[in-house]
Write a protein that binds this DNA or RNA. Structure first.
Lengths: 112, 112
DNA sequence: CAAACATATGAATATGTATTCAAGTGTTTA
DNA sequence: TAAACACTTGAATACATATTCATATGTTTG
């Protein structure tokens, strides 16, 4: 999804969506949570595996996953004792990649 | 930018980018700031115009714009007494639209 | 059923941050 | 230059929230 047409005053994003969008963005606004999301992007991964891979406490990972699940950004699936989490859909990945593109955008010479 | 290929363990997003990305996402994670960004998306707009349009105090808008400018999400341009702000590049718009697509994604029947 | 394992949860704390208010800087104009 | 206008900035406050620790829930296996 790249650039679209534009409406008169500002955007095609309806005002009612703003709180939902903000909630989702703030989910990704924490480094621990963003890393957790990245872990879940491509394939289901267990809580303990995430914790180990990111060197975070299991408790912390679980707390974050609860938020991410409530925000419908990840989906949980139980397999025996373990619970595997995976990203809910591909849009999250698109969002992250677009933002990465923004980061690597050449920034002109500004005077801060 | 849509979906890309995927690397073995998790993503093609390098670990060093995570803090930068998280900072940008948390910029968009506040409703006031997200609304301000939307105001600046398509054309330069003055601080007072934003404040009026969103019914926020000029001071608050200015505080937020300072953060957004520091994060290189908007660019400032002085025109006489007024200062006009505009989104730095198109990626921000893409990010928002991708996220809006996520919101409107049909969510299966889950048991929270 | 008891023990071991994996995850979830609640309370407590510490840190961050959105907002307001008052005052400051910069720009035009009378 | 003084006054009016547009914006910025700093301090203060109130509120949110990331993390930890201890404990609880759920699941398999002996």
């Amino acid at each position: 999804m790249t650039i679209k047409n534009q409406s008169p005053t500002h955007s095609l994003i309806s005002e009612e969506l703003v709180p939902q969008l903000a909630d989702l963005f703030s989910m990704m606004g924490d480094t621990s949570r963003l890393r957790i999301i990245l872990c879940c992007l491509h394939e289901p991964i267990s809580v303990s595996h995430i914790a180990e891979q990111l060197d975070l406490s299991q408790s912390l990972v679980s707390h974050h996953l609860r938020l991410l699940k409530a925000a419908r950004m990840v989906r949980a699936e139980r397999r025996g004792k373990q619970v595997f989490y995976v990203a809910a859909d591909q849009h999250v990945q698109c969002v992250i990649e677009d933002m990465a593109a923004h980061v690597s955008e050449p920034h002109g010479v500004e005077d801060d």
